[in-house]
């Protein structure tokens, strides 16, 4: 298989069925380091499933996902978990911050899962929170901050491990447009400065406009919009 030159993550011929529903039906994907790729498509088109496959959260029924020379589809669950801890970052629409932990503890969590000592992890976490302009929320719990702030905390958490790929599933879905755009701005800026690739699943064109490139998923099939023109 030939990856497009210099690609970091390449998927080909992905198929995945949940029961009788075909979520992915031969989808393809590729992304370069530092690139932001939007995955768009109507609800139920399979765009979240594509993200889950690319991130090694679910294994596809068939197809290959090459990341850095290894095929995610053939890795064990433990190997994929390790990869997610070390190389990937995640932002979801909601339900991602642990409500009992303070914001800074939430951001430090991925570092601590990698074995970092608590003090050091929280120091790094606070630096990232500064970059996302939420460092004043450190001691608060997620329930005590606004949606936009919470989402920025989540972005800080996704970037705290210096991931090479950041997966964002509707990161602004629960926010108004002003907060959403601020989050997108900070997210893409932080990712670009860290040279992290961003896979951005969204159904909002204005969010997708923060990307460098767009993939549309329809009925489980993907279409690279750059090749359209």
């Amino acid at each position: 298989m030939n990856a497009p030159g210099g690609s970091l993550l390449v998927a080909e011929g992905l198929r995945k069925a949940y029961g009788p529903t075909m979520a992915l039906d031969g989808a393809e994907f590729s992304i370069h380091p530092g690139e932001v790729v939007a995955v768009m498509g109507p609800s139920g088109s399979g765009k979240s499933t594509l993200l889950h496959c690319l991130a090694g959260i679910v294994t596809p029924d068939s197809g290959s996902i090459m990341y850095d020379g290894q095929d995610l589809a053939t890795m064990s669950d433990a190997q994929r978990s390790r990869l997610r801890r070390s190389d990937f970052g995640f932002v979801f629409q909601f339900g991602q911050l642990v409500p009992e932990l303070t914001c800074v503890e939430n951001v430090a969590l991925p570092l601590r899962l990698n074995g970092a000592p608590r003090k050091q992890a929280e120091r790094t976490a606070l630096e990232w929170m500064q970059r996302l302009e939420v460092d004043d929320l450190g001691r608060k719990r997620p329930g005590e901050v606004s949606g936009g702030q919470g989402q920025r905390v989540a972005v800080a958490r996704s970037l705290v491990t210096d991931p090479r790929v950041l997966f964002a599933d509707e990161p602004t879905g629960a926010l108004d447009s002003l907060n959403g755009e601020r989050v997108m701005e900070l997210l893409t800026e932080a990712a670009r400065s860290a040279n992290a690739a961003v896979v951005l699943v969204t159904h909002e064109a204005r969010v997708a406009a923060y990307s460098d490139r767009e993939i549309v998923v329809r009925d489980g099939k993907s279409r690279d919009m750059e090749r359209v023109i």
Binding site: A55, R84, F88, F92, Q96, V98, L113, S158
Partner: peptide, 16 residues
């Protein structure tokens, strides 16, 4: 459930 799934997504060990 949702929270647990997202913790697993970013690589939390089941043992933890």
């Amino acid at each position: 459930r949702k929270l647990l799934s997202s913790l697993v997504a970013f690589g939390t060990r089941r043992r933890t």
